[in-house]
Design a protein around this nucleic acid. Sequence first.
DNA 1: TTCTACAGCGTAACACTCACGCAGTACCAT
DNA 2: ATGGTACTGCGTGAGTGTTACGCTGTAGAA
Lengths: 258, 258
Amino acid sequence: MADQETPADPARTVPKVLLTAWGAAPAARKGPRPKLTVARILETAIALGDQGGTEAVTMSRTAAALGVGTMSLYRYVESRSDLLLLAADAVLGAPPEPEGRTWRERTHSLARAMRSVFRRHPWASQIPVTVEPLAPSYVRWAEAGLAALEETGLDIAERARVMTLVWTYVRAEGELAEEQRRAWAAEGLDPADAHRAFVHRLDTLVGADDFPRVRALLGSDLLAPGPAPHGEDGADEAEFARSVDLVLDGVEARAARG
Amino acid sequence: MADQETPADPARTVPKVLLTAWGAAPAARKGPRPKLTVARILETAIALGDQGGTEAVTMSRTAAALGVGTMSLYRYVESRSDLLLLAADAVLGAPPEPEGRTWRERTHSLARAMRSVFRRHPWASQIPVTVEPLAPSYVRWAEAGLAALEETGLDIAERARVMTLVWTYVRAEGELAEEQRRAWAAEGLDPADAHRAFVHRLDTLVGADDFPRVRALLGSDLLAPGPAPHGEDGADEAEFARSVDLVLDGVEARAARG
DNA sequence: TTCTACAGCGTAACACTCACGCAGTACCAT
DNA sequence: ATGGTACTGCGTGAGTGTTACGCTGTAGAA
């Protein structure tokens, strides 16, 4: 009997994670009934992540929360990193129906929706689902993004480029915000203190001779306390919206050129 | 003697990592001569990262490579994550003199330079130095970016937004590329195989009914094997350049409006 | 004398291998 | 149809190797 597990062409293999993610893993026909499901495991992992971040999602903790032995999880998931990837993709879920009449409004609406996912589950932004850009939820968001951009008239490759650029930025923005939030929390600073601390450090460390432009930020709207208190999400969200607008300006210019 | 280490205002503290990074840590006046320097430790950590990625940079391995005990490193660096942050910032280094006559060329040149740093030290892209946006090398790149954008005529806040957007994208692009490269390597696929595997998986998993636009990518230039072989850096770099151009188109449009 | 750097020992947590016992199901002989 | 049996997949406990990091004693420089 030939070894059926090792096909000749490595390019025709599909990793087990992807099969699991798409629900394409073959169901068992014999043996005892499984006590768990992948869905239930992910649910638990997501809950752990929500309250303690990526590092709180360990095999032992997840298993304990489910009331099973640590090793049982390996029946459903090949490794911890696979578990995290599946959890992150599950969190991404399906994109909402984009709001707005123009492609621009709809694209912006999708970007804001993805951002809000990463604000509700900040740990997920640290797991690049796009590494395996074929995880089902990511593909759904890709499809939605390409659809929203359809009436720009740009060709499919260009639309894909825009979509990838925006999704990459949204994820990265979430990642940075989360890292920063954790850093502040580790120092025991609340958002207001954090903003003051940042200004103080900038003032202390960054010399006017070598970094005149960075220092000039001290006097700008960016760092001046405005109506929307810094550190809270109001100001950050406005910044985010403006950055997305910048990209969409570029798309618009390109679409106008044909 | 009052506790001098705990000032009343938490916003006036500067974390030790930052002081170390800026070379502002006070030198010891007594005691035995230090066997190591932070610079030498970082050099070693960077070498380890270059050949084995982030996870290869452990305290024990770094110490062993230096011929000292593991715990000795904690005299110079507060924690592993501090070590990684310092190493990543060291790798970023100083930006080169940007090439080009227009702000556009110079900004693009800087973006490509940062990308090349992250290609030479891919692990560094996984450590968000921008978390603590006051690490010295990042500040240098920020200053360079703001300078390059000066003659757009945009105000400082807008220029800062553009700079942050571009730097964030560059880092994230490097991060994703590295994660992908590692994933392929773990499967034992070379770049050519990886491209074929990707197409095969896309074809297998992504149904035409639910994802017509994503599937349409199969027939596009993006996935068709062109003169520059996919998986190698040629095609990726061209994609990167086009994405940056997209953003700069947006900046141009905004600059023209005033 | 006083301060500081160094390193060995020890701890707790982690991911993951291996081997085992056991529970159901599918199939076959009757 | 029915009873027995072979087999497969399930859960898990023990064990391995690695990790970051705390504590403590020692040696050396000012």
